Amino acid sequence: METSSRLEFCLHSWGANSYGQLGQGHVEDQPVPQLSDAAALPHCAVRTLSGGGGHSVVVTDSGHVFVCGQNHRGQLGLGHNADVLTFQLCPSLTQKVRNVACGWDFTLLLTDFGQVLACGSNAFGQLGVGPTITHSCSALGVKGLRELVVSIAAGLRHSLAVTESGCVYQWGTGLFSHAKRALSPHPVPAHLSSMVPTLVPGLEKETSRLVTAGSAHCACLTGDGDLFLWGSNKHGQLTATDQFLSSPTLLNRSLLDGEKVINVWSGWTHIIAQTESGRVFTWGRGDYGQRGQQRPASQKPGQQSAGSSAKGGNHEVKVLRGAKQIACGSEHNLAIVGGCLFSWGWNEHGMCGDGSTTNVSQPKLVCGLRPVLIGCGAGHSLAVCAATAS
């Protein structure tokens, strides 16, 4: 996006704020977008935004990392475990960072050199540094990834990475209990039970380029536009009939009218995919409105709709066609369409930004913002917006 000297950028945040993850200097939830205290951020463009269960991370175009929010497990990478209520520079990083992925209480950072750094909780091996470290307040290098990495993803308690050659690695035991129940008496495969990066089998003939993760599932997009899914299918998020898939399974393109996938995002229990023509499809859990589909009048809140089953649960959200960006929280979403910001899904803490705490079943315009970049935490929302200077 081209900018002129008359254009300024500002960071807005809203939703859950129990730990200061909105970066506004307090711990009160905000049901409408408010300016974050961005005094510590330099006057430069922001590259990416992300959030976890109670923390937020901003990466600038210059590769610097700014953090705020919950820090009890060291997920902010500041060298201590005290919560932070406004964005602070993470000074210990010696390499420039180009991407970030936040799990519930941990953070993955992808450097310009293709190295993965991790900080926060390692109770489930989600940092990829082995079982002896319970948590880290400083970013540690994930040594088991010997190739350059091009894509990272953080689930609730597991992690994924794609290397330059297109291989997919997984670590963290967040899916282990699901796998053990589903596969017993057979053993759980190594990639679902390892505390260090382990090659995901079944993708050897594919050239993967992008990964994303839910609370207990994984998704991988190849350069050919194929989408592979594995993990828990409790809410139909894998579009399969089995309750659990231990290895990557190809999504049938007929569910997307035969089109290739160009991008994919994941909440905790739902998935959003955009096809080559710009159409946007959603599937998985929908009882909070996170699929962008109007709930039938006869359906009570919290009750799964028939469309959320594993049998043909995909749904096209037509208002999102041509979306430039989409971001998923745990059960809510943001999208930029035609320069406007839309939100939908779970809204208990006001993360949809409409001033209420009522769930939003279809994409709804968030008024007053000109979004340039968006990101979500589990229960909060972030947007870099353009504003005409006075």
Rank of each mutant, 00 (worst) to 15 (best):
A39R: 15
V65W: 06
T132A: 13
G54M: 09
E316H: 05
G166Y: 11
C385R: 13
C102A: 13
Q21W: 04
F113L: 14
K324C: 07
V188N: 05
D226R: 14
G379M: 10
R209E: 14
P91G: 01
F281L: 13
Q290A: 08
L256W: 01
G103A: 08
A154E: 08
P371R: 07
S121P: 06
F66E: 14
G350E: 07
G166C: 09
L89H: 13
V261D: 05
S390C: 08
L183M: 10
G74N: 11
Q75Y: 02
L41Q: 13
G312H: 10
W344T: 07
V65P: 10
I326C: 14
P371N: 06
P131F: 01
A383M: 07
F176L: 15
G52T: 04
N17T: 06
A82G: 11
L35M: 05
V59R: 13
E276M: 07
T388K: 15
G278H: 07
V67S: 07
Q126L: 00
P131E: 08
C102N: 09
G69S: 13
Q294G: 04
E316K: 09
A45H: 02
H332R: 04
G155P: 11
G278S: 06
L109Y: 06
G353D: 05
R279E: 15
R370G: 00
S215N: 07
A179K: 11
H135E: 15
Q170N: 14
V58N: 13
L192S: 08
G345T: 05
K364F: 00
L320H: 09
T282F: 00
S381N: 10
G225C: 10
R253G: 01
L256V: 12
P197D: 04
L192P: 04
Q243C: 01
V168A: 08
C137R: 11
R98M: 09
Q303Y: 03
C10N: 08
V384S: 11
K205I: 03
Y288K: 13
S4Y: 00
Q95K: 13
H270D: 09
P301R: 02
F87A: 09
G172P: 05
E8L: 11
R295E: 08
L7Y: 12
F342W: 12
Y19L: 08
G312Q: 11
Q290R: 05
S246W: 04
A383Q: 10
A219D: 09
H12M: 15
Q290S: 10
H158W: 00
S381V: 04
E204H: 12
D83M: 06
V264A: 15
V149E: 15
Q21T: 01
S208Q: 04
G350I: 02
A219R: 06
C328N: 06
